[in-house]
Design a protein around this nucleic acid. Structure first.
Length: 92
DNA sequence: CCCCTGACTAGAA
DNA sequence: TTTCTAGCCAGGG
C-alpha cells in the first residue's frame, strides 16, 4: 500500500453522494498534483469499497472503459449525463 | 535496472 | 481548431 494509493482512496471515499470530481482534482487533494494517471491506475485496481464512479475526466468526460455503466451509476445519484459526459446544472 | 503503457491534464505548436 | 509534448505516479515485461 503506497502513500499515494492510500491518499487517493481516502479522498475518494470522502466524496458525498452525487459528488463528482476529476482525476486531477483527486490527485491534487491527495497531495500529488499532476498524478492524474496514477489515480486511474489506482481506481482500476481498487476494491468495491471505493466509489470510483464519482471520478471522471477533465470537463466531466467519462474516460472509463464501461462509461455507460458509470453513467448509469452517476444518474442513480442524481447526476445528469449527456453524450458520455457529466452535465453540471449549476453552470453551462 | 531499463523501457513502455495507461481509467490523465495543461500548455505549446 | 487540432495535434503534439512534457510532467506526474504506478505497474508490467
Amino acid at each position: 500500500m503506497t502513500a499515494f494509493e492510500d491518499a487517493v482512496i481516502e479522498v475518494i471515499t470522502s466524496l458525498q453522494f452525487g459528488e463528482v470530481v476529476t482525476y486531477g482534482e483527486v490527485a491534487d487533494q491527495a497531495g500529488f498534483p499532476g498524478a492524474a494517471r496514477a489515480v486511474g491506475t489506482v481506481l482500476r485496481n481498487c476494491d468495491g469499497d471505493v466509489p470510483w464512479w464519482r471520478v471522471v475526466g477533465a470537463g466531466g468526460f467519462i474516460r472509463t472503459p464501461g462509461q455507460e455503466k458509470q453513467a448509469d451509476r452517476l444518474r442513480s445519484e442524481g447526476v445528469l449525463i449527456m453524450e458520455g459526459k457529466v452535465v453540471d446544472t449549476r453552470n453551462r
